[in-house]
Amino acid sequence: MMETAKIKVKKLNLYYGDNHALKDIDIKIRPKAVTAFIGPSGCGKSTFLKTLNRMNDLVENVKIEGEVLLDEKDIYAPGVDTTILRKKVGMVFQQPNPFPMSIYDNIAYGPRIHGIKDKRKLDEIVEESLRGAAIFDEVKDRLKKNALGLSGGQQQRICIARALAVCPEVLLMDEPTSALDPISTSKIEDLMEDLKKKYTVVIVTHNMQQAVRVADDTAFFLLGELIEFRETKLLFSYPQDKRTEDYITGRFG
């Protein structure tokens, strides 16, 4: 199905204490495409997403085995600097979480922590990122206003722009529209069409229609296992596994 892979995961197991939360996951994620993870809540899809930029490191008592290769380099190898990794693999969260500061400072936060101080350069990055997240026109006149004053949908696009500002190669999105209204949701779904031209996008969603609308490939997770992973069209039209079929036809979930 694919010849090159941006991310390759081999035999990944994850434990929360005694709880075996991810079991033997093997997956290859295509570059410059949208890959969706679906499955009932608690199936491990979000947990798996967070292993791709090592956000699980922040949780106590987590043990991870196996390999996650980003451009053929194991991100769990000893000596890997997670700050460099996370600069390459950006993330957008379920709840819009802009910092309590101005829109401009929100976007400039990433570039600044990575050492960019030049004001003109920052201006450029901010504008470019906001355009990239299709929100520039809505906020260009109030860049100095607090980002918390925006609507939820706008806040989420600010968060996407913030993630774009550090020039990531991969963008992880953890149910980015589940807290938003339908109009904001469709704006963000449209945006993903553009994003995949430049970035490898991985999205977790509990909404199957959303996966159908935005994703090139879809992976179905159940109880910590990767059940099926194929092109979205194929997965939804000709599921190979009985459990996938049961799930997408709405028998459980």
Binding site: T82, F93, G110, R162
Partner: peptide, 18 residues
């Protein structure tokens, strides 16, 4: 301070101190 804010910062590649 909400854990979400810290997570957002880490996800951008900020260190703990930053």
């Amino acid at each position: 301070v909400s854990a979400n804010l810290r997570a957002a910062s880490y996800a951008l590649g900020a260190s703990k101190i930053q």
